[in-house]
Design a protein around this nucleic acid. Structure first.
Length: 455
DNA sequence: ATGTAC
């Protein structure tokens, strides 16, 4: 290990299933060339591909630091978007919630494969979207300019290289703009159940009882294919760069190399695709809310939790150019950060933490003094594998249990629903509390689900 | 996460 491994957790939140490799992965990441400060794990850490999910690692770009696709994840730019509805929970009876959920059920594309909301004209237009991200979507009528003000990076990262995206990735991506996908992805109707910090909540446009929409999805088959392509290419070139790693899933290459630049260009293209995807899904939610309830949805924030970003941080008193990998970890900018939108500068960055369909989700806010390169948790974190969840739970039964608790569930499939049983996850309330206790971010509001449109 | 395998 070149640096320590630092895990923010209580004993209860530590991965402890027999054979779980998450902590070993924290140590493996600490061996990467150019890593600085520490290999970090957030309280929701669990076993992933190469890097743990919930892992944060920064490498020194000018000191031979590497970039690793496994430190970003297969679902490049997977992230969360929160919208605030112009209606309160006590204004909606169960019948009106059913009505909007039925409409979402019919209009939100989801599940493995399947088409998306936006049929692009062809590869040329996809290239434009990979370069323009959510901004491209808004320019083509999918949303309003204010949406972009509330997106990380204003909805688009510079530096996309569509030429580094394989034709196979393009083929997969063409049909899926505006689709949730499956597994833990969802579109939920939620209500603010508790406000921990009224002043910050107000700055975010949230108040007690407020109905919200939370969208969790990523870059679908396009991001997955880019990850697959570039892991393979880096794996073949490890010896050329004399990189010695304890796990081939950590395949990596210097950031400042042709292969590193190629991956970053493709990764940014996928990031922009993921942002456009969430923008399209927001518009579907807006149509459903307008039709069923006659109310609008204002964007609170949109943030990725699977991404590597080139950022400047001070290391031992010197400003360094770093490649910060956040895999299942949310950037959490503190108040005053210049890259925040003007109306959030005083409050800090909203940190969106989706829980499970039967429990809570959190809105947190970034804090000063976060040594993990301004990063925080991204969710509850799995404790059961999907396979184990399927052995323990039947989707039909879970569906009726959630409905009996007043949560309207619209699943893509019962199998996928069972895999996502709340029992398969850590206690999100504990994850949020420990994230705050560790000084990574502060709790602002707790949200509970009213309806779940499940991928 | 994922047309759940080149």
């Amino acid at each position: 290990m070149r640096v320590p491994g630092v895990v923010f957790a209580t004993r209860e939140l530590l991965p402890q299933a027999a054979g779980d490799k998450a902590l070993e992965q924290v140590a493996n990441v600490a061996t990467l060339p150019g890593i600085v400060r520490a290999s970090y794990a957030m309280p929701d850490v669990h076993w992933g591909y190469g890097f743990p999910i919930g892992g944060v690692a920064a490498t020194d770009v000018d000191g031979g630091g590497v970039i690793s696709p496994g430190g970003v994840g297969f679902d490049i730019s997977c992230g969360v978007r929160l919208l605030a509805a112009g209606v309160a929970r006590d204004e909606l009876d169960p019948e009106r919630i059913r009505r909007v959920m039925d409409l979402l059920d019919r209009t939100v594309p989801r599940g493995l494969g399947r088409g998306g909301l936006w049929r692009l004209s062809g590869p040329e237009e996809l290239d434009d979207l990979l370069i323009g991200g959510a901004r491209y979507a808004v320019e083509h009528g999918h949303g309003v300019p204010r949406d972009l003000e509330r997106c990380e990076d204003r909805g688009v990262l510079d530096g996309a290289a569509p030429g580094e995206v394989s034709t196979r990735a393009v083929e997969r991506g063409l049909q899926q703009v505006g689709s949730l996908g499956s597994a833990n992805h969802f579109l939920e109707v939620q209500a603010v159940d508790k406000v921990h910090d009224p002043e910050t909540a107000a700055a975010f446009g949230l108040r007690q009882g407020q109905v919200c929409v939370m969208i969790h999805c990523g870059s679908r088959g396009l991001g997955h294919q880019i990850c697959t392509d570039h892991v393979r290419a880096m794996d073949r070139e490890l010896q050329r760069y004399r990189i010695d790693i304890p796990d081939r899933q950590l395949a990596c290459t210097p950031v400042d190399s042709p292969r590193g630049r190629a991956y970053i260009g493709a990764m940014i293209a996928a990031a922009n695709y993921g942002r456009a995807n969430r923008q399209l899904l927001s518009e579907a939610a807006r149509r459903a809310f307008a039709t069923a309830l006659g109310v609008g949805l204002e964007l609170v924030y949109d943030v990725s939790h699977n991404l590597a970003k080139l950022e400047t941080h001070e290391i031992d008193g010197v400003a360094r150019h770093l490649c910060v990998h956040r895999k299942g970890a949310t950037r959490a900018l503190p108040p005053g950060d210049p890259s925040l939108p003007a109306d959030l500068t005083e409050a800090g960055q909203p940190v969106l933490v989706p829980g499970t369909m039967g429990t809570a989700s959190y809105v947190m806010v970034g804090l000063p003094g976060n040594d993990a390169f301004h990063s925080a948790c991204h969710g509850a974190g799995r404790v059961w594998s999907r396979h184990q969840a399927l052995r323990m739970v039947r989707g039909e039964r879970l569906h009726s249990e959630l409905e009996a608790r007043g949560i309207a569930v619209r699943p893509a499939s019962y199998r996928a629903l069972a895999e996502e049983t709340p029992d398969a996850y850590k206690d999100v309330d504990a994850v949020a509390a420990v994230t705050e206790g560790a000084g990574l971010a502060r709790q602002v509001a707790r949200l509970v689900p009213l309806g779940v449109c499940k991928g």
